[in-house]
């Protein structure tokens, strides 16, 4: 795992090579504010918590996670540096995990930029900060799964725009699998057991409890396994497609 740290460092720093990273964090924080205060009826609810924020967060991630993950492999393939990277004494696992980790840390940073919401709610009332901490943790875990999926899909193409669209589409399906719209459609053709299996894989279902401050072991297992699954898929795609 010698190469992991330099890879994470390089990838993380490359987000800041252009002003886009700063713009991204600011937009993310601003949108989080809009969703929470305007759309989430933060004041009208009269409750000292961040429920509105965490309810909209998956939808924010739907757009922002692909923006973070799109360049991870697509750019490497477009510029040909993948040939350089994969002929260094680096395993595919190190490269895949390193890139994902850099994106995940960046998402963590973006989440931290929403501390203003936390400060606001603490200034206005006395929220249960334990609940908020658990929710933040769950949000970060969800970002990890989304990024792993986006990174894997980014390895399919050398075009960042296509990588973005694939990731957004994939995450959308993954997120909404548990909603009635999808489940009713499935029930029309397939047995109830299949519908329930699909529902249990849905990101929104698993984020629901954590956004209320409840950390279930099954949710933790879910985020970890889905992340590992997509990292695994990522490694397979890199091995298959690296030289195309």
């Amino acid at each position: 795992m010698r190469a992991l740290v330099p890879i994470v460092k390089r990838e993380f720093a490359s987000y800041f090579a252009t002003p886009i990273a700063y713009v991204f964090v600011v937009i993310f924080a601003a949108l989080a504010g809009v969703f929470t205060f305007q759309l989430g009826n933060f004041y009208e609810r009269g409750m000292a918590d961040l429920m509105p924020f965490f309810q909209y967060l998956p939808w924010l991630f739907l757009v922002l996670a692909p923006a973070i993950s799109m360049r991870l492999w697509a750019e490497e393939r477009r510029s040909g540096t993948i040939e350089l990277l994969m002929t260094l004494p680096v395993t595919v696992t190190e490269a895949v995990v390193g890139k994902w980790l850099a994106g995940w840390l960046f998402m963590g940073l973006a989440l931290m930029a929403t501390f203003t919401l936390w400060a606001t709610v603490n200034w206005l009332g006395e929220p249960d900060n334990g609940v908020i901490a658990v929710s933040y943790f769950g949000a970060w875990a969800m970002a990890g799964t989304f990024l792993a999926m986006g990174a894997a899909l980014s390895a399919l193409t050398r075009n960042q725009v296509i990588a973005f669209i694939l990731a957004a589409l994939g995450i959308f399906i993954f997120m909404t699998a548990g909603t009635p719209v999808v489940l009713d459609a499935v029930r029309a053709f397939l047995p109830e057991a299949v519908a329930e299996a699909i529902a249990s894989l849905s990101a929104l279902t698993h984020f629901g409890s954590v956004s209320r401050g409840v950390l279930l072991l099954s949710d933790v297992v879910y985020w970890v396994t889905t992340t590992v699954f997509w990292l695994f898929v990522n490694a397979i795609i890199v091995n298959l497609k690296k030289a195309d």
Binding site: P6, A13, L84, V90
Partner: peptide
């Protein structure tokens, strides 16, 4: 690969990095 130095066709390198940063990265890896 740790005993190999390889210059791929077209000499690809991470464009956004400085020469210093790039060589440091390669050395660290």
């Amino acid at each position: 690969k740790s005993r190999l130095g390889y210059l791929p066709e077209g000499a690809p390198a991470y464009g956004e990095m400085t020469v210093r940063g790039f060589l440091k990265f390669i050395g660290e890896v």
